[in-house]
């Protein structure tokens, strides 16, 4: 995987931004007409930090992700990645700077095979995206694509069309696409949604085995997953962040229990 980003550009990026926060949002709001999907969000994530964002449906979690990746431009506020103001950048420019994301509903290339999907992801963050030369045996990207497929346990279906994969396999492929290249910061949007208990175990293992420098934000409804893969938690409600803390603090907070866990929740 390291062969993908050219060493010189990686070094220059890292040296210039060594102390900067991985992600910094200052007063970010997003309005759809009169509807405030997200209001005055201020959020700081350090390099390597793993944070869960919790909140009920409609709390603005996915809107937050869309503003970070650039799928939506925020109505107001500033988004910084590794010290650089990326508020107005198109998504592909943010991705090339080391950001990755997965989608709540899998967005894959159904007409292509598993290996081609991952190869595209690797190629997207490298040079020669417009290359007219077919990849051969010596192609480093093809190797890293195959490694990624093995890492998410999809080795057996590498030449299967993605439209023929099971739901759980498609979720795993989502994650493989986000791990392509040299990600520095990943946004996981409900990666465990719809997975079986066994698949959830796999997912937790994959997330906890990510290299330490790879920070991420994870949106997750399943508290078991969310609290086992994160070291800090932000609670969202009605488009605002109303509480931040360590997983155990959030879990014990009576206000959180009232709002998010439906009052009667007691943790055994």
């Amino acid at each position: 995987m390291n062969a993908i980003a050219s060493p010189s550009t990686m070094a220059s990026r890292l040296s210039g931004t060594g102390t900067a926060n991985a992600l910094e949002l200052r007063g970010v709001s997003k309005f759809f007409g009169a509807l405030a999907a997200m209001q005055d969000i201020t959020l700081t994530v350090k390099p390597g930090e793993r944070r869960a964002v919790l909140g009920s449906n409609g709390a603005g979690k996915t809107t937050l992700f869309n503003c970070i990746t650039g799928d939506f431009l925020p109505t107001s506020g500033v988004v910084r990645m590794f010290g650089e103001d990326v508020t107005k950048f198109p998504p592909h420019d943010r991705i090339r700077r080391g950001l990755r994301r997965t989608y709540q509903i899998s967005l894959l290339f159904g007409g292509l095979t598993v290996i081609d999907n991952v190869y595209l992801a690797c190629r997207g963050v490298s040079r020669n995206r417009f290359s007219l030369i077919r990849p051969g045996r010596s192609d480093a990207l093809m190797h890293s694509a195959a490694d990624l497929i093995d890492a998410v346990h999809l080795g057996e279906v590498r030449d299967t069309l993605v439209s023929a994969l099971s739901y759980g396999q498609q979720r795993q492929l989502e994650i493989a696409l986000a791990l392509a290249g040299a990600p520095r910061f990943i946004l996981f949007d409900e990666p465990a949604a719809g997975l079986s208990p066994a698949e959830r175990g796999d997912l937790i293992e994959i997330l906890n085995n990510l290299p330490g420098h790879m920070g991420y934000i994870i949106i997750e409804h399943d508290m078991d997953v969310a609290l086992r893969v994160s070291e800090s938690v932000s609670m969202m409600h009605n488009g605002r962040i109303f509480k931040e803390g360590k997983p155990e603090e959030i879990e014990a907070d009576p206000e959180v229990q009232e709002l998010y866990l439906g009052g009667g929740f007691t943790h055994g």
Partner: peptide, 29 residues
């Protein structure tokens, strides 16, 4: 036929299947 399996052609099919995801993989769609 050849270009359809080269990175450029594969990426084009990716754009066809899912332009938004291609953007999120670093492609200028």
């Amino acid at each position: 036929l050849y270009v359809s399996r080269a990175p450029f052609g594969l990426a084009l099919q990716g754009v066809r299947d899912n332009a938004r995801r291609m953007e999120a993989l670093g492609y200028n769609v």
